[in-house]
């Protein structure tokens, strides 16, 4: 083995490691939280440092659904359809108080937390959340992706 460079790992952790640094996001932006999302994506905070810089504008190419902003009951079927269009593996981030709990819109029109419509992996509180909070959530999501058990293996 002299002069060879090598590492040992498992396929599972290799895939988890690779996936966590290539998060393709689909931003489902409906409200003011979008501004903070843009700030997190722009050069000052630079979400690309964590490998999540490539935004896809079709759910079919995305890994992570960012639900950014208030979701009304009128919009609920649209959000569910977008989620269903995403291919596995997929994760969902609820961005901001409105998506987490309905926020200050405690009324007939607003869904009281989007986990009533689709399963959610990470909740980001704040009205709106600071970009640092977004990055913190992203790192937590990466940790979750890294630890995830894979559904297939090379061995039969």
């Amino acid at each position: 083995m002299k002069g060879e460079n090598f590492v040992t790992t498992t396929v599972e952790s290799l895939i988890g490691w690779a996936r966590k640094y290539s998060i393709f996001q689909y931003p489902f932006v409906t409200a003011c939280c979008g501004m903070e999302y843009m700030a997190a994506a722009a050069s000052h905070f630079d979400i690309d440092r964590f490998g999540a810089g490539l935004t896809r504008f079709t759910p079919r190419q995305a890994d992570v659904l960012f639900v950014v902003g208030t979701i009304s009951h009128k919009l609920a079927p649209v959000l569910r359809r977008v989620y269903e269009q995403m291919t596995e593996p997929k994760w969902v981030v609820a961005f901001g108080t409105c998506t987490v709990t309905g926020g200050l819109y405690d009324n007939y029109a607003t869904v009281q937390g989007i986990d009533a419509i689709i399963p959610v992996d990470i909740y980001i509180p704040g009205c709106p959340p600071r970009p640092e909070t977004v990055l913190d959530a992203l790192i937590k999501l990466q940790e979750k992706i890294r630890k995830e058990k894979q559904k297939w293996s090379l061995r039969k």
Binding site: P77, R80, N107, Y108, V111
Partner: peptide
């Protein structure tokens, strides 16, 4: 607070 959901909710 009388909402009228259009789809079946998970919760």
């Amino acid at each position: 607070k009388k909402s009228q959901p259009r789809i079946k909710l998970l919760r």
